[in-house]
């Protein structure tokens, strides 16, 4: 692992982070955060938890910001995601206005509204990790699903790099969402080898 990497600050934005676990993403993001911080990259995790809101300093290089849950009654999951957007934004803005941040890595579609709205304002490289798409989660044709697909489309088009955990998902993203395959990288984020590979991808110029 290169110790002379040029990265000084990274924000990881995730809908789940321990102790909140909805899928493997939670543990993967935590391991990645610890890996980055051990490599002396100041890492901010901006995440959501439905029962707590705090800023927790784990070490000098790792800070976890659990956003407030100001709108807890929602008419749908998509409404919840849209209402959480402002809390993610407030947290991210407070970091990027005061810290040197080179890259922001978003996990899963729940974080996409932030990318879409601020895509042209971010000075940082933007990375997005997809573990599924709405097309694979729910095949039914409905305005609700079409809305999420459109959000995915806009988000996928806005980022510099997309990591996916399977070849099949890479195909869906390049064919159904018409994303340039050079922006899509297959990588199962979860172990040290994958973190090292990801770090190399982080360091590549966009």
């Amino acid at each position: 692992m290169s110790k002379n990497h040029p990265l000084t600050g990274i924000i990881l934005v995730s809908f789940e982070y321990p102790p909140r676990r909805l899928s493997k993403i939670s543990a993967s993001v935590e391991k990645l955060a610890r890996f980055l911080s051990k490599n002396k990259i100041k890492t901010w995790v901006v995440t959501f938890d439905d029962w707590r809101s705090d800023i927790e300093k784990i070490s000098d290089y790792l800070i976890v910001n659990r956003i407030p849950y100001s709108v807890p009654n929602n008419i749908s999951e998509l409404a919840m995601i849209m209402n959480l957007k402002v809390a993610y934004q407030a947290a991210i803005a407070s970091i990027i206005h005061s810290e040197k941040i080179d890259l922001i890595h978003f996990f899963d579609w729940m974080t996409l509204p932030v990318i879409i709205s601020w895509k042209d304002e971010f000075q940082q490289k933007l990375v997005y990790s997809a573990s599924s798409t709405q097309i694979t989660r729910d095949k039914a044709t409905s305005p609700y699903n079409s809305g999420i697909q459109k959000i995915e489309q806009m988000g996928l088009e806005a980022v510099n790099l997309i990591t996916v955990n399977s070849k099949k998902l890479a195909q869906i993203i390049t064919s159904d969402y018409q994303i340039d395959e050079k922006n899509v990288h297959q990588l199962n984020i979860g172990n040290k080898k994958s973190f090292e590979e990801l770090l190399e991808k982080y360091q590549e110029k966009s």
């Binding site: 409404a79 849209m82 209402n83 509204p113 879409i116 709205s117 409905s142 305005p143 459109k150 959000i151």
Partner: peptide, 19 residues
């Protein structure tokens, strides 16, 4: 951004208004 009804439409619309 398609939406099934008014409230969801409004939340989606806000994203576009912000852009």
């Amino acid at each position: 951004i398609p939406a099934p009804e008014f409230l969801q439409w409004d939340l989606n619309m806000n994203l576009l208004m912000e852009i």
